[in-house]
Design a binder for these strands. Structure first.
Lengths: 257, 257
DNA sequence: GTCTATAGAGCGATAGAC
DNA sequence: GTCTATCGCTCTATAGAC
């Protein structure tokens, strides 16, 4: 168990990055494992280097103009590789789409589960779930933005999977809330609906990222605000009594002084 | 001034529709006024009829596949008009985009201002602003969805205008919160940030409309939930004492019993 | 010399505005 | 219906690493 000081550090975005070791190399490797068949490149070193270039370029163009508007020629220009070379790294545009789509979700679920395993109190679970989700989206902003914006253009098969992923994280929030209600910590009449609202706020962070950046709102700050907001509504009187300490000073305390 | 019974009715979605008289004809007329130059059709009756057909079709296709993926052929098929005929109603695809983009925003602002003029207490203002916004998006769902999803594909000039509109409604929420803080009704440390979160929740209603429909959540219900949620966080002790009665029974009361 | 990755013109097909 | 621009993708000669 970490000391209180470590907990505080742990809750910060930088500490999160250190903890999950979410290197770009790591992401690349995950994608590669899932698309071995389509990749013709043999030497791992060149693969890693160029795959990252390709992802960067593809996400940059797609997030600005849309995936459909990204041509292989434009991707070639952006990455500095020839169109012919590009096809060593994926079997077609469809395949590239698949890589870009699945990565955000897979990583989210992977790290979210890992983070959740370390806490048991519903209130703490809620905080960790919100923070982790926000931090992840911050660390992989282009991937999240891409997944959010392009999901609706997918063919039915892939779209269904994207929707399922969306609902699964929402259900995670709902489960936490329900557990808290059963334990008397939360007082929420419709956990699933509140979960939807939480998800909406989390998504706004990466969909409107430019806005928050311009206002100097850090992801730490945003996470704290969302958590305070949710707790002010969801935490029951009983829950308030025995709530774990938070940093910064919990809003509910400020209000009742 | 309406009696309490009328207030309750007034807060419902159907009553809202009756009040604002937001007929499709009305919307069409507004658009027409703004694009007189590009329209070659003379007889107002045929204009109105076909313009509505075109908007319906264009929104349906665009909201499913994206505006860029909508071809004049597909629009022709959807509307049952020849491609040649379509060009009597707009000067080009770009022009059609402009029509579709601006309408949601213009109408929102128009009706929002009108609704806000009738209330003065910040708490009531907040409720009216949230409800009105949600109800409007419900009444003009395809328009709102289109505006939200296609904004990022606009050329810089139009995009800037879309962003400005977004910020303006957000600022409306922030202004209400700030006024409430000055009056001691609200206790909010960062009104603009909270306003952003409110907007995020409002947008989720029309972006994820299919989800809420499947769960049987009505717009009335959703509005009530958002308002309760915001008030649990934002309303100060003083504000709770002298808050206007709400329907259904205010959540803050339920919690303190 | 061998194996790997690249360049980039070219092909066939199609989409898409008018 | 027509005509054009463009797109995804392939192919092969070549450059480069070891």
């Amino acid at each position: 168990m970490p000391t209180p000081g470590e907990i505080e550090d742990f809750s910060g975005f930088k500490a999160f990055l250190r903890r999950v070791n979410l290197s770009r190399r790591e992401i690349c490797r995950e994608v590669y494992e899932a698309h071995r068949g389509a990749i013709k490149i043999k030497k791992e070193k060149t693969l890693a280097k160029n795959l990252l270039r390709i992802f960067d370029g593809a996400l940059r163009i797609s997030n600005e103009k849309g995936f459909r508007a990204m041509t292989m020629r434009s991707l070639s220009r952006e990455t500095g590789m020839s169109t012919g070379a590009l096809y060593g790294y994926f079997s077609g545009k469809e395949d590239l789409l698949e890589m870009l789509m699945s990565t955000g979700q897979r990583t989210t679920w992977h790290i979210l589960r890992e983070s959740m395993a370390q806490v048991s109190h519903p209130l703490e679970k809620l905080r960790v779930a919100v923070r982790t989700h926000l931090f992840l989206s911050e660390a992989m902003l282009p991937w999240f933005y891409f997944g959010y914006m392009e999901a609706r253009h997918l063919d039915p098969r892939h779209k269904e999977r994207a929707v399922a992923g969306e609902l699964r994280t929402e259900q995670l929030f709902a489960d936490i809330l329900e557990e808290g209600v059963r334990m008397g910590i939360f007082a929420v009449s419709n956990p699933l609906l509140l979960a939807s609202l939480i998800k909406a706020m989390v998504q706004d962070w990466y969909v409107k990222r430019w806005k928050y950046a311009k206002r100097g709102i850090s992801v730490d700050r945003y996470a704290g605000q969302v958590i305070d907001f949710v707790e002010a509504y969801a935490v029951s009187l009983e829950g308030q009594m025995k709530a774990p300490r938070r940093t910064p000073v919990a809003r509910s305390e400020r209000r009742r002084k």
